[in-house]
Design a protein around this nucleic acid. Sequence first.
DNA 1: GCTGATCATCAGTCATCCTGACGATCAGTC
DNA 2: GACTGATCGTCAGGATGACTGATGATCAGC
Lengths: 134, 134
Amino acid sequence: MASDRLGYLLKHVLARLTAAQAEALAPHGLNGRDLAVLSAVASGEPLSQLEVAARLRVDRTSIGDLIDGLEQRGLVERRRSTEDRRRNVVVLTTEGERTFESAERVRQELEREFLAPLRDSDRFRADLRLLLGE
Amino acid sequence: MASDRLGYLLKHVLARLTAAQAEALAPHGLNGRDLAVLSAVASGEPLSQLEVAARLRVDRTSIGDLIDGLEQRGLVERRRSTEDRRRNVVVLTTEGERTFESAERVRQELEREFLAPLRDSDRFRADLRLLLGE
DNA sequence: GCTGATCATCAGTCATCCTGACGATCAGTC
DNA sequence: GACTGATCGTCAGGATGACTGATGATCAGC
């Protein structure tokens, strides 16, 4: 029922997911955005703030606030890059690594459950990626 | 590339759609939300503000502002219900009807184009509805 | 007529996103 | 070596959307 408008559907599916994620990640003191930042920082070589922002397609000013929060909770550290002293290299603390790994498992399980009503959840994901032009 | 997080994908697909809709509907002086309200009002029997809000799953206070905007542009009218004088019945003006019908065609064409990269866009829509539990 | 519920509205909060400006720093050029 | 333009991180501020709580008007049931 309700509406078959694409915007309506996407918006409320996203809202559902966001709420479910917030609840599932609350014990870790994170939300979905925080976890996304941790994930970007955790994956491989050290990144500057701008690089993190680019990976997550987040605004350059927003990423600063996000990292602020994570730094205050002791999950990441900013380090001035020695090669280019304009850049803040963001790295996980050991506490951040632990939190990330456990929260990441929660996220994966939650997404699996969230997509459970679908016959082919991989295809759904692939569709979303197609719509992003990736 | 980028991220395969569900939240990321949904959020940015929605952002793309919202931007495309805003651009396509700009000549009509509407955005996607306005059009959704017009659509709810246009479909059948007269609705109170709360009923419109419920259909669109929009907050009760937000719908008031939305209708304010549409009323100022002369697209809808509030009428105090005669049966229940607490309720504001919202109806389209003739101008509103014209705008709605033409904007609605734009939206449908835009959604068709937007989903064109997919092999089976109906299935994608159905998936979204499934995830909303409808 | 009284009580509790409902509708619309208002004020205010909160989170997200974005713009524009700034100082610090870098790279390239003369 | 000094100058120019670009880049990185930061800050202040604005715009938007979502929500809470309170209020007045109105209704329904007793």
